[in-house]
Design a protein around this nucleic acid. Structure first.
Lengths: 334, 334
DNA sequence: TCCCTAGATGTAATCGTTTTCCTTCATCGT
DNA sequence: ACGATGAAGGAAAACGATTACATCTAGGGA
């Protein structure tokens, strides 16, 4: 392997000079610079990042911890993160946890070992105290999720968003509105549930246990929810699903059971993933700026790493109800 | 920061001993081991990976270069890669290129700088010579894509798969079968095109230019293809799309134009992404084992890195035609 | 002309491990 | 009882960069 020493020898200077020329754009005399650059090119020299990282105590790498990249919601956020990271010369380590705490902790060690300069968590299964102690020592940002305490975070107002979604169904005249929840130990799920119940309360509608079913955020659990809800004696006329995947699973199964959407049952999703607009019927859903969430989270983290952040910052981005076909508003139905 | 030196001092041994105890499970006397382990725990010592990487000339990191993680096809493969990498203690650096050669080359530098031990390319825009010279120096594996030459690769037989898909439509009695292609400079697209034309030829059907339209592999280009193909004077009765996303876009637009799928036009996709089975109509498609492709690619690469690989290996995994509703086979339709 | 200063460059320490030699010491066979 | 053997552990040299400090040079002001 060709090292800086080789370059220095060929250029007839010391390694210190080579290092300076390479890192500081206006160091060295033109003549020296010319020689060094020529030597670098001739030898095909590439600086060794491990050596560099060791010395400067930085890695220009961040880790992103999430349940599953194979989920369009997360992958879009990750895209936002990676784009700004790359822009600023940082690399992104991908860490899929499948919500396995064990695996999450393993990944987390990377930071303690100085294998990364900071972390973005898109998941929330980590117990809050754990995250908090971590955030006290190294740069950490939470995206989508949030917890009480001194951590930078970026998300939308999930309670308000769920409220909007449910209210929309109420305004369309529905009285029996079901809710398909996400995993109960995720803050997101709880918030959306709160928004849902709040909307019902405000409208003076009863909250019925049998209309609130648990889910996993995956397609399959939408199917399951449909089986359960649509075989009720008095089935709901509308359903609010905590994410688009479950909404799609729900609709698919509803048709399999001979019901029409939105005619027999109206459906509203959450997230506005790329496929939402292309489903049949096109999904009415809460759009959240996933790409931007990723971007903002990355910027927050990189600022923290660069030391130009004054205390933890919480960003709440706007959400938006996107009315399409699945809710039955307008004459668009079918 | 607490270093190995601190541990050594507290345990009353040298750093050499600490290193040995920590890395070699049966080094040191039990008593010494006890003392070292205790010191490590007491100080909360974590080894510094930069220092370690520098010394052992390894990073336990691989990079995955792909066009866009926000694409279910790739994200599933990446999941497979990451799972086996993690299993073996490796980390995965995510590199989205958006098919931008410039960006691809930037990422590629990471390897030359010893920031990673190897690379998996899920993309094929890089000119083959470039990949080949790279593969000659460092461990490289191609997944999905393939090129002629000495590189390990894992993929399916795209020509055969496209042949199967097209043949299926022919067997259903279709005579005017269109093809929505991927980007023309991607080997995948070309192979699938070849399978398509081969099937037509074998069946004695004419190959008509107007029935072959270009696409981008994205949803939107499926829409565009539908507009174009379905406004033809003599529109096709069946369409084979080079991936599921375009198939979904196509179907969506077909309905928007008042056509029924599969009644007015049959559709077959490619990939069998997670959403395929849940679309309405459920997509008939070519299933390829994406997760396994990722796993195999990762294993190939890790073996190469570990030095236990004898020359480049090419793996061709089986594909499978999955008949659902969108092709109109069976009485399942709609 | 001489001194001072600023910029360029070199020397060597440093970052935190791993690993190669050594030295020491206990054990074992004879 | 004694040398051979091997295990255990220490000292110090890597690994390949960055950087504090020292040295040298040229140019400017008095």
């Amino acid at each position: 392997m060709v090292t800086m020493k080789d370059v220095a020898r060929l250029a007839g200077v010391s390694t210190a000079t080579v290092s300076r020329i390479l890192n500081d754009p206006d160091a060295g005399r033109p003549e020296t610079r010319r020689r060094v650059v020529a030597a670098v090119k001739k030898l095909g020299y590439e600086p060794n990042v491990s050596a560099r990282n060791l010395r400067i105590r930085r890695t220009a790498t961040i880790i992103v911890v999430l349940p599953d990249i194979n989920n369009p919601f997360f992958s879009f956020i990750v895209r936002g993160i990676e784009d700004v990271a790359h822009e600023q010369g940082f690399s992104v380590l991908l860490c899929n946890t499948d919500n396995d705490l064990e695996r999450e902790l393993q990944y987390t060690k990377i930071i303690g070992r100085r294998g990364a300069d900071g972390a973005i968590f898109l998941t929330a299964r980590v117990s809050s105290p754990h995250i908090l102690t971590m955030a006290a020592r190294v740069p950490v940002v939470l995206a989508c999720e949030y917890i009480e305490g001194a951590v930078s975070q970026v998300s939308i107002d999930n309670v308000a968003a769920a409220l909007d979604a449910t209210r929309h169904l109420i305004q369309l005249g529905h009285k029996r509105i079901a809710y398909v929840n996400g995993p109960p130990d995720v803050v997101l799920s709880r918030d959306r549930l709160r928004g849902y119940t709040l909307a019902l309360k405000q409208a003076g509608l009863p909250i019925e246990e049998e209309l609130i079913v648990p889910g996993t955020f995956y397609l399959e659990s939408g199917v399951e929810a449909a089986r359960r809800l649509l075989s009720l004696d008095d089935p709901p006329t509308a359903v609010f699903c905590a994410n688009d995947e479950m909404a799609i699973g729900f609709i698919k199964e509803a048709y399999a059971m001979g019901r029409q959407v939105p005619d027999d049952v109206a459906v509203v999703g959450f997230d506005d993933i790329r496929f939402a607009a292309f489903y049949r019927p096109a999904l009415t859903t809460i759009a959240q700026p996933m790409y931007e969430i990723g971007q903002r989270a990355a910027r927050l983290l990189l600022d923290q790493i660069a030391g130009k952040a004054q205390g933890p910052e919480s960003i709440v981005l706007p959400h938006r109800l996107v009315v399409r076909e699945s809710c039955g508003a307008g004459a668009l139905g079918r």
